[in-house]
Amino acid sequence: MQAISVSDLKKTFKVKKQGAGFSGTLSSFFKPDWQDFEALRGISFDIQRGERVAFIGPNGAGKSTTIKILSGILQPTSGEVSIGGHVPWKEREKLAYDIGTVFGQRSQLWYHLPARDSFSLLASAYDVDEATFQKRIKRLTESFDIGELLDKPVRQMSLGQRMRCEIVASFIHNPRILFLDEPTVGLDVAAKSMIRNLVYESSVQEETTVLLTSHDTGDMERVCDRVILIDEGQIIIDGPVSELRSRYISKKIVSFATKEETIALDITGVKTLETAAHKIVVEVNTDAQHVEHVIQKAMEQSSLRDISVEDPPMEEVIQSIYNKKSV
């Protein structure tokens, strides 16, 4: 069954331009110069029920604009959208019961109050009766491990703790579709991976359709099965995450903290990016070399204190996609 269907969605913003210098100030005072900016240039896609889709792309690509249109916040310039049979900007109130939203930069929680109070207020907003609310909150508390956070004022929480509560907040009315806008922005590595696991597990458990935006490829890999890559308001790639990985992301950044002052990793497909005392950062070309092999080689030379494996930044991935496409 289709959960989301989008066809030829366009959004144009008007942007004011100001000239430089005093004369520029003066002339824009009397006659402002409006310019059209096309944030979305006609995108189309369908999402099936229970699918987890990542919407990725660099800053300003149109990710947030799309998610805002789908969740009923923005009206598009043209195009058609159906979310569980509703047109978001026309049937916002009906839609609201079906969707849950988490905006990484905004909070649905009351800053000075314990999270529990915000949850119960949201239950009231979504007309969830007391018995159902208690049952749900019990289950969510267990699966998100927020037992000791329930009675803590939000202002005293760390960002990671707050984000867990934000996601619980968006699950309270048991939405069928969950929109997550940059859910891991600003979080440290441990908190990021925790949030990713929780979103994944709860979406499987509750059979929730998930659409998340991010400019972190990690979010997409850990949570989603499908990826839509968007740049300059257009869809560049729409397909399974595994395909994107195997075709376009052929690099890993591996950092080692070593006991020895220095180690050398002269292996094919490995480029040293940075060396310092007790530290080395390399880039592994996964087409030519396995990451495990590189780690093994490093372990032969040193007893490692710490290893981290990261993806190349989004901008590089997109660059490599453009490069391969033009070939």
Binding site: Q18, F22, T25, S28, F29, F30, P32
Partner: peptide, 8 residues
């Protein structure tokens, strides 16, 4: 001054 006067 400029910023201020630009908010007409």
């Amino acid at each position: 001054f400029r910023d201020h006067t630009s908010h007409r």
